[in-house]
Simulated scan of single mutants.
Amino acid sequence: MRTWTRAVPAAMGALALALALTGCNDLGSGKNRGGSGSQASGSGTNADEKKTFRLGEEGPEQESDMQKSSGAKYTVTPTEVRTGTKADMDNSGLRKDKEDGPQIPVYVWSTLTHKSGPAMEVGDMDDDLVIRADSGLRTRALLVMLGAAKWPNCPEPDTEKKLSPGQSEKICTAFLIPEGQKPTAVEVTRGFHNEPLEWPVAG
Rank of each mutant, 00 (worst) to 15 (best):
T139V: 14
Y74E: 03
A18P: 11
G93L: 05
L17N: 06
S164K: 15
G101Q: 08
K170H: 10
G203M: 02
E61Y: 00
Q103L: 14
G23L: 06
K86G: 02
M120Q: 13
L19Y: 06
S41G: 06
A174R: 05
T139N: 09
L146G: 00
L137I: 10
G123R: 05
S70P: 00
V81D: 01
H114W: 05
N46R: 10
T45P: 07
K68W: 14
E61M: 02
D97I: 01
Q62C: 08
V108H: 10
A7G: 03
S69K: 11
D48W: 03
R54G: 07
E80I: 04
L176Q: 11
R6V: 11
P102G: 10
G180Y: 08
S41W: 10
V81W: 06
G203T: 14
I171P: 01
K31F: 10
R6M: 07
E61C: 00
Q62P: 06
K50S: 07
T45C: 07
G42W: 10
E99V: 03
D124Q: 13
G191N: 02
V8N: 06
L129E: 03
G147I: 02
H193L: 09
T173V: 15
R2M: 13
G93S: 04
M145C: 02
L19G: 05
G13P: 00
M125L: 14
P200R: 10
S29K: 09
G28T: 04
